Each structure stands twice: as structure tokens, then as C-alpha cells.
Deep mutational scan, measured.
Amino acid sequence: EPLWIRPDAPSRCTWQLGRPASESPHHHTAPAKSPKILPDILKKIGDTPMVRINKIGKKFGLKCELLAKCEFFNAGGSVKDRISLRMIEDAERDGTLKPGDTIIEPTSGNTGIGLALAAAVRGYRCIIVMPEKMSSEKVDVLRALGAEIVRTPTNARFDSPESHVGVAWRLKNEIPNSHILDQYRNASNPLAHYDTTADEILQQCDGKLDMLVASVGTGGTITGIARKLKEKCPGCRIIGVDPEGSILAEPEELNQTEQTTYEVEGIGYDFIPTVLDRTVVDKWFKSNDEEAFTFARMLIAQEGLLCGGSAGSTVAVAVKAAQELQEGQRCVVILPDSVRNYMTKFLSDRWMLQKGFLKEEDLTEKKPWWWHLRVQELGLSAPLTVLPTITCGHTIEILREKGFDQAPVVDEAGVILGMVTLGNMLSSLLAGKVQPSDQVGKVIYKQFKQIRLTDTLGRLSHILEMDHFALVVHEQIQYHSTGKSSQRQMVFGVVTAIDLLNFVAAQERDQK
């Protein structure tokens, strides 16, 4: 057995438009009618409502009807409940999964919650491996369901041993009777949507819809739904939504950006999952974080739909894509998950301010006199920076000697690579993860907040409520011999709460 199987392995699926269902090699399930009293909570997966979006479509000038398939009504709160249950049931049916076995899954959280929910009911041990950027709410729900959680670096490539995929496979090879159901490759993922989600949409719309818009992560949702719609409703256009920084969209030119990270969760990847059939997507749109969270908040405030950030991405694209539809036509959007997962993220004004998705003037509360002053007023001194090749031991000596707790790590040209902190280095040394002679590049981390000289002290204040420091950066445009230009970030300084307090105190003292 291989040590790991690539999540982007070539698909062996034989589905073709027009091929009889009787030739399918898979076990198919028909939607079942729910009894009045459910035998367990797993029976509350599927049969989610279709809700008309009344205000947002009109606000953006849509002539067509805009409908939302509300997947956050599933038992675990997301569309991923469907595939989690289906993968477990299919693994039980073919004898792969037996009582007492362990389920391991690399996930952005929602599939993990679905699997942990099913594992709690069915009696399996469950280990979820997820990147650090995923919300604390997801972690809390997983723990409450009895799952064990392993976190991995957000910026690790999918084929790196440190990625959530790599760590999951390492655990599988170490733990007896453990299984990775593997949402990236498992046919049960798109089949769950082909058999149930798509049929529900067709039934709820009486077979009449002209466009379907869905955000894409593993691709199982859009693949399964689109294949069924292509068979039953061939005139329906399928629109895929991919965040900026991901590479799922086609044509490839759409993916060209210097951005590699994004805040919206559960969609987009740096590889093409095996289950994603991009041939059934008629057109791709890219979405960005700001519009995703703005539209998610709009869905909550104006439509009462308590959905997550990827739902915002989907609707932001839908109001663009559906401009081509006329009166009497219908566009369906998939709202994948609930706001429950993001209470401390985009639902929080403070978080939105820190990330730059909300401006101070958007909030009406009274601010102190210094709130709208610029960061450049602080008069920061030149920063202490270190090269990635310097040793951890030497870096600790320098920081202690100069009285700093942290320093930016830059390359020879001064471009920011990340940050090192005294606390992080000492804990890594004590844990045996690094040696004093190791290069400081081994303990770089990139989960820090950046701020510009033109940003306000109010925004800085919000950042420092949650973080010990902020890195002050400025952009530099560099022209190359080819005539092309590129933008790079340079370090201007490091600012802490002490710097802000000293500035405010000094100004008030001078005024007296």
C-alpha cells in the first residue's frame, strides 16, 4: 500500500453525458421521505430548503428570480454533511469501515464536522487534520463531537509532509485500522450531490432553472449537481466560483495573481482535486475576500440567511453572472454553511477592521482624538531585521541585547519573508524542534498583521487588541530589464502597544 495517494490523481470516472444510468458502476440512493420521529440526527441530513432572495437581486438590477439552496440546514450545519454520511455509508457497505475503526480526514473543517457527527452516532474514533487558518468555532464544535484535532501550517503546499493532507496520511500509516475516506478522491463525494442535492433542486424548481452558481473546494458539490442538471435540464448554465489565490478556475489566465492566501474558508485549493470535473462548468468567476464577507453580511442583514463567507462569494458572483438572465428565468445559488463557524471572524466588526474589510468610518461609535491620525505620526525608528541564514542562537542574543521581542526576517534585497519572535524561538528550542545552530528560517511564521503608514491609529489599535505587534510595510514598484514591473513589500518598522501608548501619553502631556 502506498504511503500516500495524491489528492489530485487523474480521475478514473467514466461518467458521460447521455450515458444510461443503468451502466453506472456505483451504488445510487434515492431521496427517502422522513418519518415524523427521526431514529437519529443523521436522518436530518439532506432535504434542505430552497429560499427566495428578495432584496439583493433587485438591489443589483437582476431581472431573474434568485433562489438560495440553504445547505446550513443540514444536521452539522453545512453541505459537507451529505458527503460525510455518504462516504461512511459506502465504506461500511463495501466492508472497508468496521466497528471500532478510526476515521482520519484532512479538511478545512466542515467535512470534519460532518464526519465527527456521523462518527459520534456510529461509534468510530475520528481524527481531523486541518490548517491553522480555520476558525476556532470549527475546532470547538469538533472537540465537542469527540474528534481529535491536529493543526497544520496554512501556507504548507498540499504535497508537503507538513500539509493537512501529508499529516493525515502519516497518521494513517501509524494508526492500525485507520482510514482516510479522502473527500478529494472519493466518488461518494460527487455521488452524494448527484443522487440527492441535484434531485432536490430539480424537484423544488419543478425542473425549471436557467443558471446554477456554486463555490468550489473539493469540487464534489458542483460536479455532482452539474452532471445531473446537464442530464435533466441541459439549458442550465453552470457557474463556478473560485477565490483569488486558488488555481481551480479555467482558463488558467484567471488564476494569475501574486496573491497566495485568502481568508474565506472551505473553497479554493492549490491543486485540482480528483473529484472535480471542470468540463461540466460553463464559466468560472474569481471572487475576493472583501466581496465575500460584504455579501455574507448582506445576506444575514437583508435576507435573514445566517450563512458563512463562501455563501457571500457565491452570491457576489451570482449578481454578476445572472445579469444575462431575463424576467421569468431563474438562478439558484448554493449557500454551503452557517455563520456559526465564523462568529469571531467576519461577523465581528473588530475582525473586519483588522483585516481591512471594514473602515473605521463605517462604525458610528465615538472615537478618541488620536483615532484618525496616521501611523506615520508615530515617528517610528528604523527596524531591526535579520536574514533567514542567521542562526536561532545568534538571533536570540541580538533580540535580548537590543531589547526586542520580535524581528522581521528579510532577504538580501529587503523583501519581507516573515517574522521571528523570542517566545516562538525559545519554545521551539525547548520542544526540540530546532537547535541553536539551525537557521532562523526554520522558525519563520507568517501569521502576523501588516499595516501601512497611511493607515489610521484606530486601525492599529484594533490590531493591537488581539496581537502583540504589527509590521509596518510599504510597497515598492521595481522595474526589470524586460520592461515588466513587480510590486514588493518592504519593512518600514515594527509597532507595539507600548509605542502607541507612549505616543498618546506624550501628545497629551505636551497639550497640557
Rank of each mutant, 00 (worst) to 15 (best):
S461A: 03
V443R: 09
V241Y: 05
G304H: 02
Q450V: 08
K283R: 04
L378I: 02
G493R: 12
L358A: 10
Q302V: 09
K345P: 00
Q476M: 09
Q302F: 10
T496V: 08
V319P: 04
T421V: 12
L335K: 00
I300Q: 04
V315R: 06
L363E: 03
K512L: 14
N288A: 15
R509T: 13
E360Q: 15
F357L: 12
A316D: 09
L299C: 05
I390T: 11
E475Y: 07
A382N: 11
L380W: 07
E303A: 06
F492P: 11
G483S: 15
L384S: 13
A407S: 13
H462W: 13
V415C: 11
I238Q: 00
I444F: 02
Q406A: 07
Q435M: 15
F295R: 04
L500D: 00
R400Q: 14
L373R: 08
M352G: 00
E475R: 09
A316N: 11
G266W: 01
E401L: 03
T389K: 12
L457F: 10
I239M: 09
I444Y: 13
M298R: 11
S437Q: 14
T482N: 15
E377F: 09
V420Y: 15
T496R: 07
L399C: 09
D499K: 05
G245C: 15
F346M: 12
V275M: 11
K402P: 12
W371C: 08
P368V: 10
Q323K: 13
L429H: 12
R297S: 01
P336L: 05
D277R: 03
A296E: 06
L306D: 03
T395Y: 10
C307P: 05
R297G: 00
G328K: 08
V375A: 13
I267N: 00
I463M: 15
Q329Y: 08
F271S: 00
V443D: 09
P273D: 06
N288G: 10
D270H: 06
K366A: 15
Q326Y: 12
F357P: 03
A292Y: 01
G328Y: 06
A407Y: 09
V339Y: 08
Q376V: 06
R509E: 13
L305N: 01
A497R: 11
V491L: 15
H462E: 13
S481I: 12
G304A: 01
S437K: 12
S381P: 14
G245F: 02
G441P: 05
T257C: 11
P251T: 08
V420G: 14
L453R: 15
D405T: 09
I272W: 04
T260I: 11
L299V: 12
Y262Q: 05
L429D: 13
L363V: 11
K286E: 06
D405P: 10
L358K: 11
L373W: 09
S313W: 01
D242C: 00
A296F: 06
A505S: 14
G309A: 04
I398S: 15
I396A: 08
E401R: 05
R452K: 02
T391H: 15
D455G: 12
E291R: 15
N424M: 13
I416P: 08
N341E: 03
T454Q: 10
P388Y: 09
L306C: 04
V315E: 08
P408S: 06
W370R: 05
L378M: 13
A382F: 13
E401D: 15
K355I: 04
L430P: 12
Q511W: 10
K359I: 14
V409P: 04
K446A: 03
D455N: 07
K433A: 13
L363I: 11
Q326M: 12
I416C: 15
G312K: 01
I247E: 09
V473W: 11
R459L: 10
G414I: 12
C331A: 11
L429G: 11
V440H: 05
S287E: 09
L380Y: 09
C392M: 10
T344Q: 08
W369P: 07
S310N: 06
K283M: 11
G393K: 12
A382W: 09
S428C: 15
R459N: 10
L363T: 11
G483E: 15
Q489H: 15
M466S: 14
E401P: 13
I247S: 08
I416E: 03
E412Q: 15
A249Y: 05
L464E: 07
I247D: 09
G414M: 01
V275I: 09
Q476G: 10
W351H: 06
A506F: 15
L453Q: 11
A382G: 15
V440P: 07
G418Y: 07
R330E: 09
V375I: 13
A321V: 15
A321W: 03
I463N: 04
I247F: 07
I239D: 03
Q487C: 13
V275S: 04
S246W: 00
V386P: 06
L363N: 09
V332P: 00
K320M: 14
T496A: 15
K512Y: 02
G309L: 00
S437R: 14
K512A: 12
V495Q: 08
L358Q: 10
T294Q: 11
K449Y: 14
E263C: 08
K433T: 10
I416K: 02
G483C: 14
G393P: 10
L306Q: 06
Q435T: 12
G458L: 06
A311F: 06
A470W: 01
S428W: 14
E244A: 09
P243R: 02
T261V: 07
W284H: 00
Q323A: 11
E377C: 07
R297W: 00
L305H: 02
L417S: 15
G356C: 06
Q439L: 11
K359N: 15
G308T: 00
Q439E: 14
D411N: 12
F448I: 15
A505D: 11
I267K: 00
Y479G: 12
L457S: 01
K283F: 12
Q511S: 10
T496I: 14
R452T: 03
L387T: 12
V319I: 14
E244P: 08
K345Y: 01
K442V: 15
R374M: 11
V333C: 13
E290S: 14
A470Y: 01
W351S: 00
W284L: 00
P368N: 09
V472D: 03
S437P: 05
D277C: 07
I267H: 00
K355N: 12
A249Q: 04
L305G: 01
F404G: 01
S348P: 09
D455K: 04
E401Y: 13
E291A: 12
V420E: 08
R400S: 06
V280W: 10
E360W: 15
E258D: 12
S246L: 00
T385A: 14
E360R: 13
P436Y: 11
G493P: 12
Y269W: 00
D438C: 09
I272L: 12
F503C: 05
N502T: 15
S313Y: 01
C307T: 09
G268V: 00
G308K: 00
V280Y: 14
Q406F: 04
T279Y: 15
E361P: 10
P368K: 10
F346G: 02
G458A: 13
Q329R: 12
D499N: 04
T454A: 02
G309W: 00
R297P: 01
D499E: 07
D405N: 04
I451P: 15
T261H: 12
K512I: 04
G245K: 05
D362W: 09
V494R: 03
V494C: 09
K359Q: 15
T385Q: 06
T454E: 11
M490Q: 15
K283H: 03
R340I: 05
L325D: 01
Q476T: 11
